[in-house]
Design a protein around this nucleic acid. Structure first.
Length: 192
DNA sequence: CGGCCGATCCACT
DNA sequence: GTGGATCGGCCGA
């Protein structure tokens, strides 16, 4: 049920992004348990990917976490306001990551509503990477946390989608990445 | 529903 | 000093 290290060591980050659709993201932070079904992801393909923070093998204090062994969280602050949650994949030294862009709330919905200060019926409640982190209580200070620990983890509950429900598109907000901005590395499912 | 735009602050140059 | 893997309020249609 809970994804183990083998899942995160997959060397194909685009495949992992696709496999994460339908998995359940859990957090137990500040004693509060919340969970949601992952419905949108984006793959960031390491040093050859112009959209990746690790493009060109750039190692900085911020990106160092991406070089860790797969199975930990890379969370960073975006636009000074939003924490964006990524799953680090592949073996140590290869900075692959998958950004979680949307979830469908599943457990602890009142807790999420309090964090978001809006009702779960709102269309943008947990759609968009900043909203996902806020709903799940994930903060950029959580970067580096293991996904096989007891604070943040991901489970397979057997949810599967047919190929016709799943679509791949270019990634959002990466226009600066030139031709890499066109790669179909974003996966999204219409779960309604 | 869609487009515009300001917010806000850390990491990197 | 600069700018961003975004969000939400506001506006017009």
């Amino acid at each position: 049920m809970r994804l183990n290290e083998d899942f995160y060591l997959n060397e194909d980050v685009v495949e992992v992004a696709q496999l994460l659709i339908g998995k359940v993201l859990h957090t137990r932070l500040d004693g509060q348990h919340t969970a949601g079904i992952i419905t949108e992801t984006e793959a960031y393909n390491g040093i050859v990917d112009k959209a990746s923070h690790a493009y060109g093998n750039r190692r900085t204090a911020r990106t160092e976490v991406m070089y860790k062994r797969g199975g930990c969280a890379y969370v960073y602050l975006c636009y000074g306001i939003h924490s964006l949650f990524n799953v680090v994949t592949n073996q140590s030294g290869i900075p692959h990551a998958v950004l979680v862009r949307a979830i469908r709330p599943l457990e602890g919905i009142p807790i999420m509503e309090a964090r978001r200060r809006q009702h779960a019926s709102n269309k943008r409640f947990s759609s968009g990477p900043g909203s996902v982190s806020q709903a799940m209580g994930i903060h950029f200070s959580h970067t580096g946390l293991s996904l096989t620990g007891n604070k943040i983890w991901i489970a397979d509950t057997g949810i599967r989608y047919s190929p016709s429900q799943l679509k791949a598109t270019p990634r959002i907000g990466v226009d600066y990445a030139g031709e890499d901005a066109l790669l179909p590395y974003r996966f999204i499912v219409d779960s309604r």
